[in-house]
Design a protein around this nucleic acid. Structure first.
Lengths: 256, 256
DNA sequence: ACAGAAAGTGTACGCTGTACAGAGTTAGTG
DNA sequence: CACTAACTCTGTACAGCGTACACTTTCTGT
């Protein structure tokens, strides 16, 4: 139960916290809290007031203990953030998903995006390790199971999953930072297309940027695409690529 | 010259700072500093000691002024960070790049990755706006110019650029956070493959994760791929997809 | 009964961004 | 040349932050 002085230098340590595989140790008084209470309270604060409001003092105060008590349950704030990320992931609801790999992957990507939009603070957490929590693995399993029914090999499957999840994280992060910066920049996500087009037209007249000028004046920026439109469009491009890879593997299998 | 009370609510404001399009205002004493000095010093500190060491007090102290003086040149620390990101981008050196679009894009991606590895702090800056600085535009121009020689239309070109740059940012961020977290997790990037494989094999025996278990025991994680290997592999996958899109547009052009 | 382990407390350090009020300096105007 | 408006720069203050360290208190197995 104690977050002792090994300080998480052992990769097993976080895994043990995550899967509750620790040997509690029987001597001495029982702790008055649990890891779930600590992380749960931290998540609640993040949901309500953003990640910036999550401080050790604040969590402790809400739980009715002093600040340093928390360090009996968690080795450091960074580890707490890791745990928040893992525990804030809900289990995927696949009840109305189609069966084909493409349908699954599309729903998977959209579901992940929605998860991040619901808890924007998750993207402010630096992810120091691959997904290891039970629910994170459940998400992985869903995607891998769908890909396993295709001609892809194990390496392909992991590669595809990395590309797709990297895209979802990156795209959603972009959307969220632009939106949260709009108080400062004065421009919302939808407005950026037009604003950017005008800026480029004004600034890229320079002979150094002929192609940029051409693109800017082509009117391609003249839209009010929502973030969701852009996301779906790029997702489809990636799924097309996966389809092409699957086709290639099918041909190889037929030939070999 | 003053960073007055409009406070950057105008998207034009940052652009003006970036391109030095401001009307200086002639009355009153000249400022003893310049925007370049402020941002330059901030970049120097970030290079030497990381983004966490970049504080308004520290910059001011190094420049021999008081903290609040900086706010005559920059509306807020967030804006300063935006400016650091833009100004830390060096102009691309394309002297030994090949001519074909694929070669250009590959060099473009690797060059961008290298830039981020050299200045890891750039990825800690939330990017609230699309690239607007002169050197950022130079990078865009190079990529767009290469794509302009293919059958892609303007929308395709922007889409491809977004996908590729999103991938580079995401992949490099992953690599850097894993590396910087390894003091805490005890695992380096190269070791994560094996460690993760072992963890999955231990944890995914559960009947909830059959595919995961299968993949984990397939030995696919049993490698010591460097981050660069993984990057190049995934980049090639994306470039294949771009090639497929180009082929489709060529066929459409031939048919229509 | 008591040793020893664990849980919980209180204090201290050296930081952070920026609001605000005021003092000092300069250039254009009459 | 004096003056005023514009502008730069300073000092203080506020309300926080993560966690090292030394400590008291509480409980369990022997």
């Amino acid at each position: 139960m104690a977050a002792d002085e090994t300080r998480g230098r052992d990769p097993q340590y976080l895994l043990d916290l995550l899967w509750r595989t620790q040997s509690p140790g029987t001597r001495g008084p029982r702790g008055s809290l649990s890891l779930d209470q600590v992380v749960g309270e931290a998540v609640r604060i993040a949901d309500e007031e953003g990640i910036a409001a999550v401080s050790m003092r604040r969590i402790a105060q809400k739980l009715g203990v002093t600040t340093m008590t928390l360090y009996r349950y968690v080795p450091s704030k960074d580890d707490l953030l890791d745990l928040m990320f893992s525990m804030a992931t809900s289990v995927p609801d696949t009840s109305d998903w189609p069966d084909d790999w493409r349908g699954v992957l599309r729903n998977w990507a959209r579901g992940t995006r929605q998860l991040l939009l619901d808890r924007p603070w998750m993207l402010d957490i630096p992810i120091g390790a691959p997904p290891m929590g039970p629910n994170n693995l459940a998400w992985m399993e869903v995607a891998l199971a769908a890909l396993d029914r295709t001609a892809l090999n194990e390496g392909d499957m992991i590669g595809v999953l990395l590309i797709i999840s990297g895209f979802v994280l990156g795209d959603t992060r972009q959307e969220l930072t632009m939106t949260s910066a709009s108080a400062r920049t004065g421009v919302s996500y939808e407005e950026w297309g037009r604003v950017y087009g005008r800026m480029m037209a004004r600034v890229a007249t320079d002979e150094r940027f002929p192609t940029l000028a051409k693109v800017a004046t082509s009117g391609i920026f003249d839209n009010e695409n929502t973030a969701e439109d852009d996301f779906n469009e790029n997702l489809d491009f990636l799924l097309d690529s996966v389809a092409a890879l699957i086709r290639r593997r099918e041909e190889e299998r037929a030939a070999g």
